[in-house]
Design a protein around this nucleic acid. Structure first.
Length: 591
DNA sequence: TTAGGGTTAG
């Protein structure tokens, strides 16, 4: 023990002195060219038969990203041993070649070499990366047969496998029977819930973890903050941020980006920017998080400005950065900037625009009224690129600019390629209604009913004192229902006195005629806002998260609510934010 | 003649 410590202190950790050939490999590192040179050297000097040298060469080649070279080298080894297999399995799993991990694992079994617990952790991770739950279950059984069912690393890997695959029941079952759960196992469980859209459950597990006195680490916080973002739970997010500060943990890039994202997705852009400015290290993800935060909150100019700064500072944008920038341009009507960014993607960065980029571009042109140019663009796209999402953006533009003829063509195309999507029927019937073609509205409604399609149910949530309250249209399940409805009625009459006029075409055919005004009045966002007004003091901002997009009537009504109550109201809808204040919205009615 | 695992950000 003392001798080992002494060696460590002298900086000569490791036991035996390394051979010159081994040192040459270490010098080459994970760079393919130098590795090949060393390899050639080994062959010439005859030392390529050394198993140790070959193993090191193989893992370095894998780390360098050249799996084909690694594979070729592997095939040249006549009788691979356990050490070689485990090294290869670990390296291929760690450096992103899960299909090879599985291949080496099968190959190992074919050579009748028994796997170890280390083998299983890597193989299970690769099954998770491949989203191959069937294979994962098989490997799980094999691990049990080999006697590794109680290994805490294998168990943690299995928790991660099941939660990533969406089988949270199996994940929990595994997690629940773990005798000692490491922080990593907790993290797997928390992120599993969060990534499957079960943010509330993620928070519950986080609370349990702390009740049991397990210290969260930065990975825990990253997942918990992501859960807060999903919920739009600003209060909770702030308290988690305080926990991060109190924990004294270093705010690394992942944690910083997660904080930026949380604040931005909860509608507090200035706090997001504060975090961004305080970060010592920034990578493309951090920059993109901030740009995207500006974009979704309606600060298009700031998003484009930050994008310029990012490039000036030498950070290289990727495809996701461009989605954020183009979305910013679309929502803020920055057409020249958007065109420039789109062209630059390919020209300056060699990035191929995907469906998402085309959606933004069509959206941008369409909103700006350049319908023909947008339509031309779609027609020039290949069949695969002109995905339904691109046509949907086009349809939105047609409705916005009341272009009946083009709208019908686009909608009919969408009904043909996606007859199961209720959104398209609703959109087409809205267009017919705008054109006064009520016969067609009726026809579309019947078509939809004939195919047993129903419009998705809209709901809104509000976060008060760390609790999330959910409201859906006409919902009366809430204990304070009558109070909320009564207050909403009073509120709407005050709005009407201030000049608000309901626009019944917003609900269209989704409900029966006599229910229209009722439905319009009790849309979920209005209920959630009313509840928020009842439960908070004067002057406090109201924050709502909606699962779908807001209708035009609600948008108009909320402007008036912001006047008569003198409150700032922030609504996050499916796509972006609306900050209502003194009768106007940050989206400038451009959404 | 050789190491070591499972979790995280746009």
């Amino acid at each position: 023990m003392e001798a080992k410590q002494l060696r460590h202190d002298l900086g000569v950790a490791g036991s035996a002195p390394k051979s010159p050939a081994y040192l040459a490999l270490l010098r080459a590192g994970s760079r393919i060219k130098p590795l090949q040179q060393v390899h050639a050297h080994l062959v010439v000097s005859g030392s390529h038969r050394s198993r140790a040298l070959l193993t090191k060469l193989l893992t370095l080649a894998c780390e360098a990203g050249s799996i084909l070279y690694t594979h070729r080298l592997f095939l040249s080894v006549p009788i691979p041993d356990a050490f070689l297999f485990n090294s290869l399995i670990k390296a291929s799993s760690k450096f992103g070649f899960p299909q090879y991990t599985v291949f080496f694992y099968h190959s190992m079994l074919a050579f009748c070499i028994p796997p170890s617990s280390y083998t299983f952790t890597s193989v299970i991770k690769s099954c998770a990366d491949l989203s191959d739950l069937r294979l994962g279950r098989g490997v799980h059984s094999h691990a049990l047969v080999c006697g590794y069912g109680a290994d805490s690393f294998v168990q943690a890997a299995l928790v991660s496998l099941y939660s990533k695959s969406g089988d949270l029941g199996a994940a929990w079952k595994m997690f629940d029977k773990m005798p000692d759960r490491s922080v990593v196992a907790w993290n797997s469980m928390i992120s599993g819930y969060e990534q499957n859209g079960l943010s509330k459950e993620a928070i519950v597990v986080f609370d349990q973890m702390r009740e049991l006195g397990v210290e969260p680490d930065s990975t825990t916080f990253v997942s918990v903050l992501a859960a807060c973002s999903q919920l739009g739970a600003l209060g909770l997010g702030c308290s988690v941020h305080r926990d991060v500060i109190n924990s004294g943990l270093h705010v690394n890039v992942a944690l910083g980006s997660s904080l930026i994202n949380m604040y931005a997705r909860c509608g507090n852009v200035s706090k997001a920017r504060e975090v961004f400015d305080s970060m010592k290290e920034r990578n493309v993800i951090a920059w993109t998080a901030m740009i995207s935060g500006y974009a979704t909150n309606g600060y298009g100019t700031q998003a484009v400005e930050l994008f310029r700064e990012m490039k000036a500072r030498g950070s290289v944008p990727n495809t996701i950065t461009f989605v954020a920038v183009l979305a910013a341009c679309a929502h803020a009507g920055l057409v020249p900037e958007g065109r420039e960014a789109f062209a630059s993607m390919r020209q300056d960065y060699g990035l191929v625009p995907s469906v998402e980029h085309h959606v933004c571009l069509v959206d941008m042109l369409g909103r700006a009224g350049l319908l023909n140019e947008a339509y031309q663009l779609i027609k020039e796209l290949g069949a695969e690129e002109a995905a339904p999402a691109v046509w949907t953006a086009m349809l939105g533009a047609c409705k916005m600019h009341k272009n009946f003829d083009l709208g019908v063509i686009v909608a009919e195309h969408l009904l043909e390629v996606e007859p199961e999507n209720p959104g398209h029927y609703v959109m087409l019937s809205n267009i017919y209604a705008l054109a006064g073609r009520m016969d067609r509205v009726e026809m579309i409604r019947n078509m939809m009913m004939g195919r047993s399609l129903r419009k998705r149910v809209g709901y809104s949530t509000i976060d008060l004192n760390h609790r999330t309250y959910l409201f859906s249209m006409g919902d009366k399940s809430h204990p304070e229902t009558s109070e909320v409805y009564q207050h909403l009625d009073e509120l709407m009459s005050r709005c009407r006195e201030a000049g608000y006029a309901p626009a019944p075409e917003s609900v269209m055919h989704e409900v029966e005629e006599e229910e229209r005004e009722y439905a319009l009045r009790y849309h979920s966002e209005k209920l959630a806002i009313t509840f928020g007004l009842l439960k908070t003091k004067d002057g406090v901002s109201i924050r709502i998260v909606k699962n779908l997009r807001m209708c035009e009537d609600c948008h108009e009504a909320i402007k008036f609510i912001s006047i008569v109550t003198k409150r700032e109201i922030i609504v996050r809808d499916k796509l972006r934010f609306h900050h209502f204040k003194d009768g106007s919205c940050s989206c400038m009615d451009y959404w």
